[in-house]
Write a protein that binds this DNA or RNA. Structure first.
Lengths: 343, 343
DNA sequence: TGGGCCAAGTCAATCGATTGACTACACTGT
DNA sequence: ACAGTGTAGTCAATCGATTGACTTGGCCCA
């Protein structure tokens, strides 16, 4: 009586003088089992502290309701916002999420995807980490699997990958930032952050740069770096202390913009008066920044839920084209952008 | 050839004219299998795009290397810092993390724990959400399981739970905040945030209140609320606009303190001169706040790694007492606390 | 010639649940 | 009296890997 191994379906059956078949069906409320029997089975399961062995069931059914969700990183809270929308959608449909965090490290991302496959998840929702390529994906998913293994990327696109993708209109996001700064009268505008290793960073920067160019404004200062307050602070401090400092900052991410605000504060500059600052993402905190941050809103709900529902439809057998769905961005004007034209 | 089901161990065996036993052993580099055979098996596995079915293996072995980690929430990035330390430690020991986020919702927390059990995780590391009780835990884990199912709480303690717990010295954290504000000459100090639903909140507030009382200072204003910038901003704005405004804020969390800084800024008050603000946690961003935030450092590494290693030792059969390990806190002085005595 | 031994590998039961095919039995109507 | 029908439940193969016990064949040496 001490070898307390896990209670099995079999134990309930024995105690009730039934077969495992009956218990199995009863536990899942099969109509073939009379109510009275089902009640007895349920009661006994409860009494014994029975825990359903879903792994065994999945093995037999050759199918699982677990879906892998891999996030590039969580130190930027905006990705938690994506996750929330995705989880809500999937949970509502009875799915379980196997969550991984890659910390912007392709090796960790691969380890997670591999684990997920080995544990038999039925698909993957991926916000790819820096530098992820279509080749990485192909290497992670054997060809014969790919056919029946729904895989969708969100937030960041993987170029050339033949899977459905749901991303923000990053080109337009960059354009919106540029357009509003130009309208505010700025000409010495600096682009902060991003780089070339995500579609998001490339897109936003390109939209920004081409809009300035079209307006005939001299080539902007571009300063790449990590997506953190620290980088925004350091870069803005340096630039503002230089000769010919910029009069506006367009930031790849709100997080960077927060750092810029800090730098302004330290230097005694008031954002929205002495200098303009625009972020991107519109994370929850942006409205509570000091002062409230002007930014380009990314529709995290539309992207997250869009990816999740497309995933579920794919799994249901609906043919989903391996195309990239681009969700519209919008400008949110708050205190850090100068309202009146530049003198 | 189109019924592309998953490749099995068996498929490799057939193609090589071997038995599944041999292939199974070879794949795990068993010494009984000659090198040459192992190489051929590995090569064939690679060629076929074989994916190990860990769920099947775990079923047979009646054991899994997956460990559930359940976080109360992720919108506060400090919990991601705990997670990072825990994951590092567990991954290093060949474990896989099954991650859940409860969003401060006991129902979601229960759903996750249940899922984890059903999928056969071998233990649980829990940062309990608001209001979690020893009873919740008992209800989630059948008694017969509890014996062989390592379960450890971290960051927040569950009162009365007979499991090992790793937490910050929250009483001392509250005392440190109070002591430093008193030393700076403050007497009208306000406590912001927390509440009564986590050990963290209760402990910090108690340490704070009892230190003020011991110093003979009038009972502080106490203002409970959610752990967010928004709450800090709203509460501080209201209090500072009132008659007899506080001259210092001790905040349950850095996140709240950030909101307070924002409120100060809006009202034209300079933190560290006109008013002092102290946070708690020392999250990564605290040093980059505007201005840099004085705070009580919580040793997230010691807590996270402590919990993870205790967990692993428990699993290895070492007897770990169901006691609470309290990790020391320390005060980090930055710009938001007045350095000279109050005039 | 044959016993002993080793190397390389196979056999078959097993983990816990699922499910299509089947049985046992009671009742009904003619 | 018995075919027909329905109800409640059982049988046994199956999912994919693991592993202790066993086999097979080759070789050595007395």
């Amino acid at each position: 009586m001490n070898t307390s191994r896990r209670i099995r379906l079999r134990d309930i059956a024995d105690r009730l003088g039934l077969s495992t078949s009956t218990v199995s069906l009863a536990l899942r409320n099969h109509p073939r089992i009379p109510e009275e029997t089902t009640r007895r089975v349920m009661a006994e399961a409860q009494a014994l502290g029975y825990i359903y062995n879903r792994a065994a069931a999945d093995l037999r059914r050759s199918h699982s309701d677990v879906i892998a969700v891999c996030l590039n990183d969580l130190s930027n809270p905006v990705f938690n916002e994506f996750l929330t929308h995705i989880e809500d959608e999937l949970r509502q449909q009875g799915r379980t999420v196997f969550l991984g965090v890659a910390r912007e490290d392709r090796a960790l991302q691969n380890v997670f995807i591999r684990s997920a496959l080995e544990y038999g998840v039925s698909g993957l929702l991926l916000c790819p980490c820096h530098g992820t390529t279509a080749g990485d994906l192909a290497a992670a998913l054997p060809a014969h699997l790919a056919r029946h293994f729904p895989c969708i990327a969100f937030s960041r696109a993987i170029e050339g990958a033949r899977i459905p993708q749901f991303v923000n209109d990053d080109l337009e996001a960059g354009r919106l930032a540029a357009r509003h700064l130009l309208e505010a009268g700025h000409r010495r505008i600096c682009w902060l952050g991003g780089g070339q290793s995500t579609s998001t960073a490339r897109g936003r920067q390109q939209g920004f740069v081409e809009t300035l160019r079209a307006a005939g404004v001299p080539a902007p200062i571009i300063c790449h770096g990590p997506t953190s307050r620290a980088f925004g602070h350091e870069a803005a401090s340096r630039l503002l202390a230089g000769t010919k400092p910029p009069d506006a900052f367009a930031c790849f991410s709100d997080l960077i913009a927060f750092g810029v605000l800090h730098a302004c504060h330290t230097l005694g500059l008031v954002p929205g008066r002495d200098v303009s600052v625009v972020g991107c993402d519109d994370m929850e905190e942006a409205a509570y920044a000091n002062p409230p941050l002007s930014t380009v809103r990314v529709d995290k709900g539309a992207i997250g839920r869009g990816a999740a529902t497309a995933f579920l439809r794919m799994q249901a057998g609906e043919p989903i084209a391996p195309e990239t769905t681009v969700i519209a961005a919008s400008f949110i004007s708050r205190a850090t952008i100068r309202q009146a034209p530049f003198r």
